[in-house]
Simulated assay, not measured.
Amino acid sequence: MSRYDVYGALGSPYSLKVRAALRAKRLPHTWTGMTAEDRGRVMPNVKAKVIPLIRTPDGSWTNDSTPFLLGLEGEGRALVPTDPRLRFVCLLIEDMADEWFMKAMFHYRWFYPEDAKWCANWLMFDSLPNAGREGVERNAEMIRSRQISRMALVGCTPETAPVIEASWKRTCKALEAMATGPTRFLFGDRISLADIALYGQLKVMSVDPTPMAWLREDTPYLYRWLDLADDASGLDGEWLEPGAAIATAPVKALLAQAGDTYLPFLQANANALAGGQESFEVTLEHQRYRQSVFKYQAKCLDTLRAGWNALGADDRAALRGPIGEGAGIL
């Protein structure tokens, strides 16, 4: 039987995103929590040394979750609505989860000493299953120092911490309204790629000490929803009609956040790249935010603009209101 082989890690949001997507699509696959030994064996198959790695049924390898999953839309159950308007909304929220929401995961994991110690030990325990406690904790010190040293590169600094935490909590509260609403997922009773991307980030945070405590106290039903999204293979349902889906409070809140936070972030990054700058500053969540430029995020903006311009005039008009002034960036 043809199958997909996923090599990932329980502490990797993109690994859990891919696994949950394959489960939801009901496609045959295996899951390998990648050890250091596995890494040496499978990493040479890809150019960018990031996880998860996926071996496809034809024997080829890939590790960019979004292109991989979009390429699978013709297999198993679809995760992206076919309606053009709803498809764009789904992909916008998915992109925001991958490129902006992930900053909260990285921030909480390495900013707070308790979290940094816990997470480094946990990650190394998975990577070195036979090293014993002393070996795990000795190596954990190295990964902790390395990851903390990378925080400023991705915009996770003491100065940006309030922006990142405020934005993350804003998203979580919107998702709590979804979890306690009349439908199981953002666009109805059928899980989408947007749901799964948000799930991937939140699932790893649900075991990291500081975000776990906040989630359980302030958004307890979102916390429980994560187990629902983890394996939706047995959940049947339909998406709402586009107008109804976009009019729900959770989706409206996420579109507004894309308009006033995520799209301005992408625009500032693109402008800085075009001007030859190494970093940029922008006001987000009523506070100043600064980070180094990233070429990949400029590609994300180009892709979103292409999707926006492919919409009909009526669809763009219907989305301008919920997105707000940020729609002009598109």
Rank of each mutant, 00 (worst) to 15 (best):
A9T: 06
S12Y: 03
S15N: 05
A21Q: 07
L27A: 03
L27I: 09
T30H: 08
W31P: 02
T32I: 13
G40D: 13
A48R: 06
V50D: 12
S60K: 09
T66P: 04
P67K: 07
L69M: 08
G71E: 08
R77M: 00
L79N: 10
P81D: 12
M105S: 12
E114Q: 09
K117V: 14
A120W: 00
A120Y: 04
M142D: 11
Q147G: 00
M151G: 10
A152S: 13
V154R: 02
G155N: 06
T160Y: 09
P162D: 11
A166D: 14
K173V: 09
A174L: 13
A174I: 01
T180F: 02
D189K: 08
D195R: 00
A197P: 05
Y199D: 02
W214E: 15
E217D: 11
Y223F: 04
A229K: 01
L235D: 01
L240P: 07
T248I: 06
K252C: 08
A256Y: 08
D260W: 06
T261N: 11
F265G: 04
Q267M: 12
Q277A: 15
Q287A: 11
Y289E: 04
V293C: 07
K299R: 10
T303A: 15
R305F: 09
A306C: 07
G312P: 10
D314W: 06
D314C: 10
D315Q: 11
R316M: 12
G321F: 11
I323F: 12
